[in-house]
């Protein structure tokens, strides 16, 4: 209890000092919601980033299919974080069932938000060769189709590699929804604008992990800095592993990587 309090105070003091010294671009920090900074930093050094963009870190997201248990905590956390309207998914978890005749059955009832309570009824239990789960989210492409097609500059790619949406300029023409090869976009019926996973940019900028990464009980979702050679994501991406991205032929160069991606996964 004490050490946490001390940690918070330390972070906060250093932070306020920075603001006072004016090292942080003025407008960026005036409106930080109360409470955000009370939580200890999860991504070390993020609160020292002071420019309009993250400079020292290059983030990557890794999903480890061999670890995912399909519990859907990520989906729950995501829905809670953004109040995502029903029937739309910033992230979802797919279940793959492969039988002994190599037939592939895929489903994702309610995007996996309610978890997987029952086996597929159309595949006889005895015939199931393999079952695995694949979480999906924004691929944060290096060459994003959605940014290319947005007619008004409402979907954009920041200098730190995040693809984000300007809710105040989006006209909701849905062109980005059509252009995304991964179907991670939707039109939010509440804001009436395009919406998608942001890798929790607002959390990351304040030193917190994306909500889904934070809740994953089995570390199937990893988020980290590729500039840090000690980081888990760096090690995974630079050690021998079965690593791939989704639909590499699209040429979008996703920065979302999958460990143990199977050929059945689209």
């Amino acid at each position: 209890m004490k050490d946490i309090q001390a940690e918070i105070n330390k972070g906060r003091r250093a932070f306020i000092k920075k603001v006072l010294e004016g090292t942080i671009a003025g407008s960026l920090l005036l409106v930080i919601p109360a409470g955000a900074m009370d939580i200890p930093e999860q991504i070390t050094g993020m609160r020292e980033e002071d420019g309009p963009f993250i400079k020292k870190k290059k983030f990557a997201f890794i999903v480890d299919i061999t670890r995912c248990i399909g519990c859907g905590s990520c989906c729950v956390a995501d829905k809670n974080e953004y109040n995502v309207p029903d029937g739309h998914y910033r992230t979802w978890v797919e279940r793959y069932v492969i039988d002994y005749d190599d037939n592939v059955y895929v489903d994702s009832p309610n995007g996996g938000l309610d978890g997987y309570q029952v086996p597929r009824e159309d595949v006889p239990e005895a015939n199931v060769r393999d079952t695995f789960f694949v979480p999906k989210l924004c691929n944060m492409c290096e060459k994003p189709s959605c940014v290319q097609v947005c007619p008004v500059g409402a979907t954009y790619q920041t200098d730190d590699g995040f693809v984000l949406i300007d809710q105040k300029r989006c006209v909701a023409c849905s062109y980005c929804v059509q252009a995304c090869p991964y179907s991670v976009r939707f039109i939010n019926p509440v804001t009436k604008t395009a919406d998608k996973c942001t890798w929790c940019y607002h959390r990351v900028r304040k030193g917190l992990l994306p909500a889904c990464v934070n809740v994953c009980p089995v570390q199937a979702r990893l988020f980290g800095d590729l500039n840090d050679r000690e980081s888990q994501v760096y090690r995974i991406l630079h050690e021998p592993h079965v690593i791939s991205v989704l639909k590499p032929g699209m040429g979008n160069k996703p920065s979302l990587h999958y460990v143990g991606l199977r050929r059945e996964v689209v």
């Binding site: 407008s27 960026l28 409106v31 930080i32 919601p33 409470g35 955000a36 939580i39 309009p52 963009f53 956390a77 809670n80 974080e81 953004y82 109040n83 409402a154 954009y156 920041t158 984000l164 949406i165 300007d166 809710q167 105040k168 300029r169 942001t198 940019y201 607002h202 959390r203 900028r205 304040k206 917190l208 909500a211 934070n214 809740v215």
Partner: peptide, 13 residues
């Protein structure tokens, strides 16, 4: 817009 996105409410602590 970057600032708008950054200042989104953190709901999950």
């Amino acid at each position: 817009a970057v600032v708008d996105e950054m200042n989104r409410e953190i709901r999950n602590g």
